[in-house]
């Protein structure tokens, strides 16, 4: 399917925080309680609509283990957005955020949009990290923040879409060099300006994976 823009994302964070589940929830709208450990990197994709424009998201879900860290690093440079995920029921995953962030900042292009995600918000009774703490961390490091649940799908769409909105705004502001594909952004075969006249009636988000 034709798109106006294509954004590349990566999902990073400690192992077991729910990165693969978030991706599956976003692309397939389902939750898999027993999920295979991600080996290396897995790919997923979905189309969304922002400002009446079709935007294709290509997402690389990474393995959180230390042994895969160097592989993961290869993906920073070419990504326009990163979802940095921790688990609100495991403080250690929150404590590791600084390391992840340093790694990401060091290897990515400076304009990469980072969305901080506190996942498993459905497990309120086992919460170890307060929402305020996540918000404070995000504020301090200039990130967008959201609590999500890959299980109930709460805020999952929003997390991916808000990240795209932020990237989109940066494009409008001219911050991103959209002609350099290494930034993780590509203009679609159909030019966005000619597309915008057609897209007035395209309201909600495109549902489901496996488009095109």
């Amino acid at each position: 399917m034709a798109y106006a823009y294509l954004f590349k994302y990566i999902i990073i964070g400690d192992t077991g925080v729910g990165k693969s589940c978030l991706l599956l929830q976003f692309t397939d709208k389902r939750f898999q309680p027993v999920h295979d450990l991600t080996i290396g990197v897995e790919f997923g994709a979905r189309m969304i609509t922002i400002d009446g424009k079709q935007i294709k998201l290509q997402i690389w879900d990474t393995a959180g283990q230390e042994s895969f860290r160097s592989i993961t690093r290869s993906y920073y440079r070419g990504a326009a957005g990163a979802l940095l995920v921790y688990d609100i029921t495991r403080r250690d995953t929150f404590n590791h955020l600084t390391t992840w962030l340093e790694d990401a900042r060091q290897h990515s292009n400076s304009n990469m949009v980072i969305m901080l995600i506190g996942n498993k918000s459905d497990l309120e009774s086992r919460r170890e990290v307060k929402k305020e703490e996540g918000e404070a961390f995000a504020r301090e490091h200039g990130l967008i923040f959201m609590e999500t649940s890959a299980k109930t799908a709460s805020n999952v769409e929003e997390a991916f879409i808000n990240t795209a909105k932020e990237i989109y705004e940066k494009i409008q502001e001219g911050v991103f060099d959209i002609n350099n594909e290494a930034n993780g952004i590509k203009i679609g075969p159909q030019h966005p300006t000619t597309n915008s006249t057609l897209s007035g009636n395209q309201g909600g988000q495109q549902a489901g994976g496996g488009c095109c």
């Binding site: 080996i39 290396g40 990197v41 592989i71 290869s74 993906y75 070419g78």
Partner: peptide, 10 residues
């Protein structure tokens, strides 16, 4: 596979 994926990503 890991290298294959990075090459594809690029």
């Amino acid at each position: 596979a890991a290298i294959q994926k990075i090459v594809a990503f690029e």
